[in-house]
Design a protein around this nucleic acid. Structure first.
Length: 162
DNA sequence: ATTAATCTCCTAA
DNA sequence: TTAGGAGATTAAT
């Protein structure tokens, strides 16, 4: 079930399944606003949509969301899920390095693999892969566009050097 | 079973 | 500052 999520920076696109939010994608200039779903939306899904929307707007305003929708991370491998769960714990306005994440999940050497898991993150923003910087304080990479990463960090009031 | 590709990091020059 | 290699994991061959 794929639905548009209106926010202050445009319409995200979200896909929900039986367990909750499974995938989220950034607003694209092309994405039309009209519903992508023909079928009626069940009430519990509408509740998830609302949670997703308010959570996104909170983060985009630099505030900590009071509540997140249930996230379905089951598409990932065990390793990826461990990384994603760790990312979800990073408070708004704080950052970590890829090395720190690796350390926290008990794989201190799997630094580069953490980068890979971040890139495979199906739910950007809510799972804040953008709050992970390189060890030297620089911005690092971002598969959906460095510009996007900068904007997100900027909205959270985080200054990145360079 | 191999290889190529990652949103990395540390060392040495 | 740059150059190079180690290293873990995954998707593709």
């Amino acid at each position: 079930m794929t639905l548009p999520i209106p926010t202050v920076i445009g319409d995200f696109t979200a896909r929900f399944n039986a367990h909750g939010l499974a995938e989220l994608s950034f607003p694209s200039p092309r994405a039309s606003r009209k519903s992508i779903e023909a079928a009626p939306v069940p009430s519990h899904v509408r509740a998830w949509v609302k949670l997703t929307q308010t959570a996104l707007n909170s983060i985009l305003a630099g505030k900590t969301p009071s509540q997140l929708p249930p996230l379905d991370l089951s598409v990932g491998t065990d390793f990826q899920q461990a990384v994603w769960r760790e990312l979800a714990q990073i408070p708004v306005q704080q950052t970590r390095t890829y090395g720190e994440i690796a350390h926290r999940i008990g794989r201190p050497r799997a630094v580069r693999a953490v980068g890979g898991a971040c890139g495979a993150n199906p739910i950007p923003v809510l799972i804040p892969c953008h709050r992970v910087l390189a060890a030297n304080g620089k911005i690092g990479g971002f598969s959906s566009g460095l510009e996007r990463k900068r904007e997100l960090l900027g909205r959270e009031g985080v200054f990145v050097r360079e």
